[in-house]
Design a protein around this nucleic acid. Structure first.
Lengths: 90, 90
DNA sequence: CCTCTAATTAGATATTTATCTAAATAGAGT
DNA sequence: ACTCTATTTAGATAAATATCTAATTAGAGG
């Protein structure tokens, strides 16, 4: 949960998530949509991946990212629903 | 939305939110629950307030914080529901 | 008006995060 | 094996964040 909310704290990463809701996309395609270098985008991808918010598969030369919607939903649901106290770090 | 997700990125601030779900509490009470100094807690409160996630009112000497649940819900809903693309920065 | 309490602001420092350029890797295709 | 393309890793730097101690503010109540 920590990693998920850290990942969500950056606007670029939230926008990446929005894109991936429409379907999987390659690192290059995603990177092309932002005014940042590919290495920078790569570190954003890495954070999303470390939080398990996205998965990757390789297709020839390109790496395809896809969204793990369930991870996102679970984290947000825990924040909203969970018991008024304990269990932040689960 | 930016400010909300920045506020949510820190575990202590998420825990503050959990506490406030049970009802309003004073700065001092909240601060007493964490192993951090009051000034440090005060800056956490300030970030929550800047994101409009909490409101304050004064009662005698103490400042009472309460949760603005609707702001939290709206931000999370936008992230989940919103249209696969634009409008991250709304 | 003085003093006590609760809380915030100031100022300093340490850590983390975001970003870049340059270099390295992985696999495809010739 | 070489080369081209896509992506990530390394290394550096700049900017933002978290934290502390010390000082300040705001109001309560004698």
């Amino acid at each position: 949960m920590n990693l998920v909310f850290e990942a969500l704290s950056h606007p670029v990463r939230r926008q990446i998530i929005q894109r991936l809701k429409r379907g999987p996309q390659s690192a290059g395609e995603l990177a092309g949509m932002f005014d940042l270098t590919k290495p920078t985008m790569s570190t954003h991808f890495a954070k999303l991946k470390k939080a398990d918010l996205v998965s990757t598969k390789r297709d020839k030369n390109t790496i395809i990212y896809s969204l793990n919607m369930s991870i996102l939903e679970r984290a947000l649901a825990e924040l909203i629903d969970f018991g008024g106290d304990k269990n932040d770090e689960k």
